[in-house]
Design a protein around this nucleic acid. Structure first.
Length: 571
RNA sequence: UGUCCUGUGGUGUAAUUGGCAACACGUCUGACUCUGGAUCAGAAGAGCCCAGGUUCGACCCCUGGCAGGACAACCA
């Protein structure tokens, strides 16, 4: 007993080996057995019919991460088998996003459409083996005859066609002798299989449409089931990783490998990412875009990669996020707070600090000489000395946040209030002497005095005051448009709607607030996507809409704020 | 009422593959602080879906339940 405990403890202290997720365990077992000549080859296989989102990022990081970890390769393959929904616009954005995330597929950019000829030959092979047939039933008829999960289906009357006839008909399909929907090629498996996907699945359908890569070369297109696994085989993918909903397809995936006698890629399924307060389905995201409920795919409130990028997320933060959420087979919902934690953690180390006042109220230091200006030394990043220092101009009139002043403060309020002292960051300790209000009682000006001995850095500046607040000199302030984002949905699970209601009911009406704020000059002409921490407020990054002299900032995330809790508790 | 998958603190992921549960986020204390940030120290929180069984011993094995999810596009 004692010995066991000691052994365990010492083992823990020596090296806590990062535990392997179940996919890594499978791979390492395969490696141990020297499968595939100990080769690891994965692929990321998006369909170019939409923009990538954070859920895809999980898959990208997983697939490319495995390739890197096991010294293998990872392909980028576009699963472009449906000309009706796909477009080059999407392949371009997908490539950009994968690259931005920091992954490199080198020369291995593949397309399922590149394999159309070979896939066609595979189909012919199946026909010749008597394992596929041309069926003349309509989609509705096929569906009606497929049965239900609990009831077996009925065999197609065309199931018994001769190999010759099937070959001839299939060739005719390719040649364009039939119209859309007139015929399909089906696998001949088992109409009474308990697995719906084994009930003579459709392999090819007729679609007279222009394909973004093959143009009008084809009018028959393979279905997912007949394209995906075979593409894996063609590329000699060792581990074909996909999400859970394809689990029931695996028997079919393996059936094709067996019947076609092709490279046995191994399909492994994992649970897709769900994020609280977020919808992740392409269909729903598309709907938000189409109905202008957001401003496009790259709206900073969107969970798309391009949206997160515009919001101010870094590739590193998304990668560590993807790594830390882990991979398993059980359904999961990750708290967005965790994503936010990852970006804060990253930005904390790399974002330059700057002072900005977003909800300004003027403050006049009555005993400070008019016209005088001082240059206050400020640290660019306390977490990174190499970020250096800068000077911030200080003068008699400054802006502070309205929230940093209260006429009737609660007990634990550390900020400015009548008769109270507070430090102006990098400057002086001031004391509130008076408040000026307009006719309706709104505070228009706060009047203070300063203690000249307390200038930051000076020998006698060490007097302690409870609060430190940020400020911007009125005379030196730079105007900026600032976009404050909040979560897009008010409900933790936006798809959980009362009967008949739509997920859009749960949209947060206040997810975007646009204001004008003041920053110090250091943030007056940011590069696009340049990141800052506005002291005490949060992380912000320059939006694409930034013009010379007209900065636009997006709030990436607020800083953690333990005051809101204190405030709430003091009610 | 078919087949397949899943079921560990609030959330997510672990447990050297049978030795009474760890890490992260979150929460709560306290220290420190010219960001009520960061950092540091610490605490609470699951007894592993349930019931049997095997075993000296089970989160890990067996049996039976229960719960959740996936599957009935010529989408992927």
């Amino acid at each position: 007993m004692e010995e066991n405990k000691n052994a365990r403890n010492s083992g823990k202290n020596e090296e806590t080996k990062p535990s392997l997720n179940f996919i890594e365990q499978i791979i390492e077992e395969d490696l141990r057995q020297n499968k595939n000549q100990s080769r690891v080859h994965t692929r990321f296989p998006p369909e170019p019919n939409g923009y990538l989102h954070i859920g895809h990022a999980k898959s990208i990081c997983l697939n490319f991460g495995l390739g890197i970890k096991y010294n293998g390769l990872t392909n980028l393959r576009f699963d472009d088998t449906n000309p009706l929904t796909e477009d080059v616009e999407y392949v371009d954005s997908i490539k950009e996003d994968v690259r931005w995330l920091g992954f490199d597929w080198e020369e291995r950019e593949y397309y399922a459409s590149d394999y159309f000829e070979q896939l066609y030959e595979f189909a012919v092979k199946l026909i010749k083996k008597g394992k596929a047939y041309v069926c003349d039933m309509s989609a509705e008829e096929i569906s009606a005859n497929r049965g239900t999960p609990t009831r077996p289906g009925k065999e197609s009357p065309f199931r018994g066609r001769s190999i010759e006839e099937n070959l001839d008909l299939f060739a005719g399909m390719r040649k364009g002798e039939f119209s859309d929907g007139e015929k399909v090629l089906r696998a001949r498996i088992d109409m009474s299989s308990p697995n719906m996907h084994m009930r003579d699945p459709v392999l090819y359908r007729i679609i007279h449409a222009h394909h973004h890569r093959t143009g009008n070369d084809w009018c028959i297109y393979p279905t997912y089931d007949f394209a995906h696994g075979q593409s894996d085989s063609i590329e000699k993918i060792t581990h074909s990783i996909c999400t859970l909903e394809f689990e029931v397809h695996r028997p079919l995936y393996e059936w094709f490998i067996k019947e076609l006698e092709i490279f046995p890629s191994r399909q492994i399924e994992f649970a897709r990412l769900n994020l609280s307060y977020t919808v992740m389905s392409k269909r729903k995201l598309l709907e938000l875009v189409k109905k202008n409920l957001v401003n496009g795919w790259d709206d900073p409130r969107m969970p798309t990669i391009c949206g997160l990028r515009r919001r101010g997320y870094t590739p590193e933060s998304i990668r560590t996020f993807a790594e830390r959420i882990g991979v398993a087979k059980r359904d999961n919902v990750i708290d967005v707070a965790f994503l936010e934690h990852c970006i804060r953690e990253d930005l904390n180390h790399r974002a330059s600090r700057v002072m900005a006042v977003l909800n300004p109220v003027k403050l006049v230091i009555t005993n400070y000489p008019e016209g005088k200006t001082e240059e206050m030394e400020a640290v660019n990043n306390p977490e990174d000395e190499s970020a250096g220092k800068r000077f911030v101009s200080f003068s008699r009139e400054i802006y502070i946040e309205r929230e940093d002043f209260m006429e009737d403060p609660p007990k634990k309020y550390f900020r400015l209030s009548p008769g109270n002292e507070v430090r102006l960051k990098y400057a002086y300790i001031i004391k509130c002497e008076d408040v000026v209000k307009d006719a309706s009682g709104n505070i228009t000006e706060i009047r203070c005095t300063y203690d000249a001995l307390t200038r930051s850095g000076s020998p006698e500046s060490n007097r302690k005051v409870k609060g430190t607040i940020h400020w911007v000199s009125v005379q030196h302030a730079c105007e900026a448009e600032v976009r404050l984002f909040d979560r897009l949905f008010m409900k933790e699970n936006p798809e959980d709607t009362a009967d008949g209601e739509d997920f859009k009911m749960n949209l947060n009406p206040d997810s975007l607030k646009v204001i004008t704020g003041y920053t110090e000059p250091a943030a007056s002409s940011p590069a696009v996507l340049e990141k800052f921490q506005f002291e005490r407020l949060g992380y912000f990054c320059a939006d694409y809409d930034t013009k010379p002299g007209k900065p636009v900032f997006n709030r990436t995330v607020t800083l953690k704020d333990s005051w809101v809790k204190v405030d709430k508790n003091s009610d």
